[in-house]
Design a protein around this nucleic acid. Structure first.
Lengths: 158, 158, 158, 158
DNA sequence: TTTT
DNA sequence: TTTT
């Protein structure tokens, strides 16, 4: 279908440390749950109420998976931009089940840490602020920090 | 949780006519599936491939439900902005199941028709472009078209 | 034009305290600058580089203007969702000038504080997490905290 | 600054054919204006009113610039995702002026055509649906249609 | 299972 | 003028 868009933006907190696995290709992937919630005051009772939504975030992306592995942990607040995918699987009884996930594909999606924890000292220490992966296809073995140099063109006179 | 965001933006086509029902409150709700898809050329085989994702859209909103009822049908292209909600239900065997939906709450979310049906000229021709619901609480029985008058302040000198 | 969307999402830090003014209607408006920036390492020199972008945020919204007045100050990190507007004005020489702003209209837009500063104590203290204004037209004189009760329908069985 | 986001999403119509130029690097860039508008009915007079906003879109991206050159023309409806940049320049009197643009950097941003020109059936019909550029650094001289093969990983078992 |  |  021409002309479609599938985009999810969440800001929330990790409910658990990321699980990181190697995929058959050798690339790593990471998964973690993120909670978003809304609070409001019930009109009738005046009581405070809260509704929490849990999102499964799956990162198929070597570089962002490393970032998740190294910098994210339970409780961290993140900005995540990905797309929705519903995956079909079979339960133990052989019945079809479906899980909807927020997926950051290779070269797609963004992950930004929102905890003001800074860059942890060290000179020239890493800035892992906006971590989207546009490092390009092929072998990009430079450490993650450097690939941001691919994402902004510093030669163009705006 | 303070400081969370839960936002989905999709552009896609309705896979079926909207189902519209009255809720216990008397308000109408509408549901319909929307497909988004991506196409790419397989790197190995050179073949064109496509992956379609289906999204369940649920509108808890009297006015937008009417819009869906009156203007949307199978095949229509729409812009939808809502939030993700995973709903738990029991299947016929009493087992827990989960469905993730894109929900447009009362006073939240946007629905814009993208089919170029336009207003085709003519005076006062209907423009149903951006249909978000901000018609306010309480009884708003004016026809949907007029409630946009609540959403932009025409008195403010920018 | 049917079918258009005009949406800006920024996460950044206030460069100054909000300016709040009363409008002719008596409603308050608020303005403040927000900085976003990107850092990367220059491919040639290996030096760290940074580019900061400044955004003028203008809130035409009694409730969110109050929130800005009471809770935001220079340095605060915020999530802002609004729309782009370019405003024409005349400079001292009578020449046309244009300024582009991120505008949160009445009943439109969102403002979320991302500093983990919490709810500042007090019993049942306010949760000012997601602050979008959907409080409806007409007289809504309840304090800001309560209007969130309009934005989520707690009667609907999901 | 760690943790910032600068994102604009518009759906609107081109006000003119794209201007395409070669940059010093040899890459092409494209520029075009896009209109978004909102209509509403004036609360007092009952008259229909409309406010159109013009956005300058600038594409610093060889592949998307080609797409713009080859497929977009005045009147076309597009989905654009980019970031805000305010550029400083001097007018003929040497006075500083500022222009705010929606910029699609190299390897960043999305451009999707929303005119229902579709692929109209037929085998192998062109699909130019989602055109974001993630083709990677370096020379990517394959025709634009094929670079999408870089953007989705067809080897990963979801 | 997070956070406020 | 922010922030890291």
């Amino acid at each position: 279908m021409a002309g479609s868009v599938n985009k999810v933006i969440i800001i929330g907190n990790l409910g658990a440390d990321p699980e990181v696995k190697a995929m058959p290709s050798g690339d790593r992937m990471a998964k973690f749950p993120v909670a978003t919630s809304e609070t409001w005051r019930d009109r009738q009772s005046g009581e405070r109420r809260e509704k929490t939504e849990w999102h499964n975030v799956v990162i198929f992306n070597e570089n962002l998976a490393k970032v998740a592995e190294n910098y994210l942990k339970k409780g961290a607040k993140v900005y995540i931009e990905g797309s929705l995918q519903t995956r079909k699987w079979q339960d133990q009884n052989g019945q079809d089940r479906y899980s909807t996930e927020i997926v950051l594909q290779k070269y797609r999606g963004e992950l930004t840490m929102l905890d003001g924890k800074g860059d942890g000292g060290g000179s020239g220490g890493g800035n892992y602020g906006r971590m989207d992966d546009r490092s390009g296809g092929g072998n990009n073995d430079r450490p993650r920090e450097s690939f941001a140099s691919d994402t902004l063109d510093d030669d163009i006179p705006f």
